[in-house]
């Protein structure tokens, strides 16, 4: 197991290095720079700005000094927010985006898991079709539509929940979490349905029933373990996706999270901020993939056995 973990961690290094290198040169190849504005910039001013951000140095030297700073955990100063470092900006948005992602994940797992298992118990009946149609809607409905729609219904017409903000009033976290979680709930519903269907016809379930276990225990204790494996493997990448993909929800609900910085950075050609957030999210994705592999192994005795044999 430890060998497996170390090996996977070592594998992550070239992946992240490749992400950094590609991003570094790609953003510099994009037309327009961090200082181009609608108004003409005086050549002296342009030169002074480039000198302060070391853009006057040869590209390869910029790249190497960036890597050098990165090793020391310094992602550099932001171009768009003079006086703030990329580290500071990421860590000001991350806790909020993580909290939002966590709640969205709860919504997705609870609603999606329930709907999927429910549908799998009576396949090809109304009990299957209704949740599966709803899950399709959840997948297809973009959050820039679902968000304003929920706001209109629950925030403005019914006046039950706040329409924007984060942590300012009780209940203002409900709508953003549902909006962000809806799409993932749809995926999880479909994954858990197919996973459960496969498992429900397995021999070990027949054994469990033959032992005389009540159906509730059969499903909850025996079937779910195997049936929800695909969901578990999906959760890692999904959580990384929630962290990096919350931009729309953060904008619609006026939430000061990481997603807004990420998108603004690309529009502003904030080189260090684009690199910093991309690298950070790449590291997160690698980490969550690893985590979901470990959890899958832990839940699946056969995989666990293979690991033991390998190490």
């Amino acid at each position: 197991m430890w060998r497996f973990l170390t090996w996977r961690l070592l594998q992550a290094i070239p992946v992240i290095l490749a992400v950094i290198t590609i991003t570094f040169f790609l953003v510099r190849a994009a037309p327009g720079g961090p200082f181009s504005t609608e108004k003409a910039v005086h050549p002296q001013v342009q030169a002074a700005l480039e000198a302060q951000y070391r853009l006057d140095q040869p590209m390869i030297q910029q790249y190497l000094s960036y890597l050098g700073d990165l090793v020391q955990g310094d992602l550099g100063p932001s171009f768009n927010f003079p006086g703030r470092s990329v580290n500071e900006l990421i860590f000001s948005g991350l806790p909020i985006t993580a909290e939002l992602g966590l709640y969205a994940m709860l919504v997705a797992v609870l609603i999606g898991g329930l709907a999927g298992v429910f549908a799998a118990l009576k396949p090809n009946s109304l009990q299957d079709y209704v949740p599966m149609s709803l899950s399709m809607i959840g997948i297809c409905m973009p959050s820039f539509l679902l968000g304003p729609l929920l706001v209109l219904i629950f925030g403005i017409w019914l006046d039950w929940l706040p329409i924007s903000g984060w942590g300012n009033s009780p209940g203002d976290k409900v709508l953003p979490s549902i909006t962000l979680g809806a799409m993932y709930a749809g995926y999880i519903a479909r994954l858990s349905r197919s996973g459960m269907l496969e498992v429900l016809s397995a021999d070990y379930l027949r054994t469990a029933r033959a032992k005389g276990l009540p159906e509730r225990v059969v499903i909850a204790k025996h079937a779910l373990r195997g049936g929800l494996l695909p969901v578990i493997t999906f959760l890692g990448p999904a959580f990384a996706g929630l962290l990096s993909g919350s931009f729309v929800v953060e904008t619609v609900f006026q939430i000061p999270g990481l997603g807004r910085f990420y998108i603004q950075a690309a529009f502003n050609r904030d080189y260090t901020m684009i690199l910093g957030t991309t690298t950070f999210l790449a590291a997160l994705i690698v980490f969550f993939n690893l985590l979901s592999d470990v959890i899958a192994a832990w839940l699946n005795p056969r995989l666990r056995y293979q690991f033991k044999k390998a190490s």
Binding site: L121, I219, V231
Partner: peptide
């Protein structure tokens, strides 16, 4: 905790049909 998270909806379903 994790298993509980995914078991919870099922429990609800069976409780409702109990």
């Amino acid at each position: 905790a994790l298993l509980k998270l995914v078991q919870f909806p099922t429990h609800l379903y069976f409780l409702a049909n109990s």
